[in-house]
Design a protein around this nucleic acid. Sequence first.
DNA 1: GATGTCTGATAGTTTTAGGCTATCAACAAC
DNA 2: GTTGTTGATAGCCTAAAACTATCAGACATC
Lengths: 316, 316
Amino acid sequence: MARPKEPTLRQLEYFENVARLLSYRGAAEELQISQPALTAQISTLEAGLNVALLERSRSGTHLTPEGRELLPYAREVLSTMRNLRERAAVVSEGRQTTYRLGVPPTLGPYLLPHVMPELHKRHHKLKLYVREQPHQILLQELRSGSLDIAILPLPVRAEDLIIEGLFSEPLRYVVPADHRLAGNPVVRPPQLRGERVLTLEAQHHIHSLVKNVCDRIGAVIERDYEGTSLDTLRQMVVMGLGTAFLPALYIHSEMHKPEALYVSQLEGVPLVRDHGLAWRAAAPSRHFYRELSADIREFVGLRLGDVVTIANTSRR
Amino acid sequence: MARPKEPTLRQLEYFENVARLLSYRGAAEELQISQPALTAQISTLEAGLNVALLERSRSGTHLTPEGRELLPYAREVLSTMRNLRERAAVVSEGRQTTYRLGVPPTLGPYLLPHVMPELHKRHHKLKLYVREQPHQILLQELRSGSLDIAILPLPVRAEDLIIEGLFSEPLRYVVPADHRLAGNPVVRPPQLRGERVLTLEAQHHIHSLVKNVCDRIGAVIERDYEGTSLDTLRQMVVMGLGTAFLPALYIHSEMHKPEALYVSQLEGVPLVRDHGLAWRAAAPSRHFYRELSADIREFVGLRLGDVVTIANTSRR
DNA sequence: GATGTCTGATAGTTTTAGGCTATCAACAAC
DNA sequence: GTTGTTGATAGCCTAAAACTATCAGACATC
């Protein structure tokens, strides 16, 4: 193929060597090629650049003025190439680059502070770039390649993704201080019939979980006041606008005594959200992601074992 | 030869293209190669760097985290290579790089100010890096490649150098104001018999020229006071320590009325120094150097034609 | 002046790498 | 279920890189 002869890195390396040693035979020896091969490559380089780089006679070799001017440029190319190879060597050791992790905003802030320090201790060169987005967006960006891994609410059915269960997180019933059920550690479904329940906007997975449970037990979803975040939801409960089901990790992280709210466990009807770590099945780092998944389960078990239930390792 | 497979520029170009288009077939089309050839080159690059750069499935292509991290490095290599090619394109137009010109210190300061402005007008991208050194050193450094061209006193016999005559410069007889010969525009050899003549140190060409003439005419070289420069020589003449033969260009540039010295022309015995431009016979820019030689003769003729005699174009 | 050594260059040959076409399997769209 | 598109694989061909052998010129030594 008659494409114009561009200089190659090999030729620049040869040129740099000859320029430094001022001897074809000396440079050939150092480069471990034959002297005629070196001569030919330098000639080809000069033809490609359309400029004489070296002045040679039987009495020795010198740089031409043009060669002298271009030598620093050649060294620059070789230097940047060396940078690339060195960085590749580091990166190829594994877990030493930046992975983009997506998490739902209703989970990330209440989970990651417990998990990140442990991950950092174990993989101290690992860098995770965290993005909080609604789970539908997370799924889309994982598929499109804008994310490398994501924590998604289960179940998720996607043939092109690997999803491993992390843990189950219950949602607790939260009432204001003057509520008739305040102070009861456990509430049963008949006690909630007719209760007004506040929840997040429809785009959140929690919305559908809470709606399903309310439909089952006869509680009423309050549609006039939808929360845009768990905090705004909690403030509305404090203000007496209704009651709510809030995630256990949120409660664990954000609600402390003294607090104007009471928390109860709902008995008889399971209300949990399952979390899983997802990645693309074709990802070259999929073995590392599987290990990361196990690490997260381990650390969540250690730090938050009394708040959530660790998942069995399974493909859902 | 089983040398480790280093990445090539071609491979980095291919990688950058795929990374930007996120499609092997799209990139192959833009690169004007077949898609299997592209796939093979990317695979070879990944093997060479020992890291997966791209994640590919039948549903599309993504950068891996490692590939994302190395892509700026690859772009850096391609950028420095582009810089080299662009600079080479400028340099290959000719006369647009820096040439090292050597000149004797007894000539350079009195010649170049007349010649450089004209040279710059004619070759406005030409850059001459001037070094003043004794002519023996000039010859040595020209041969060793530390200089590209040099103005040398003639004759010079060197098989490996091309030398073209530039001009002949007479040396004038200079006496203090109270000298018996002061005011005579012309002096003859018998008038100088027994005269004490100061000159430069032996390493200078002028020394041997003056010594030869003094031997012929019976003047006496003053060995107790040798000049280290033309200026110091002239100051000693002013102080009445003796007389001297000074180059015409020096006189033309540096000695003006009123001055405590008188200048005469020596008749009957020629006392001139011939100057030539020298370069290595094997220098790729030798055609340019010949043109430069002609330019210098032209400009010296125009600006200093009444001080020196332009040489015929000849190989001495 | 003759001879030997060292320099870079040239010629012919061999080996390796880059690129081709044909075809494959997997996946998505209709 | 069929068709089209994706990246991957196999076999082949050509160009490039490298080899060895040898050359001519320059220089040092005898």
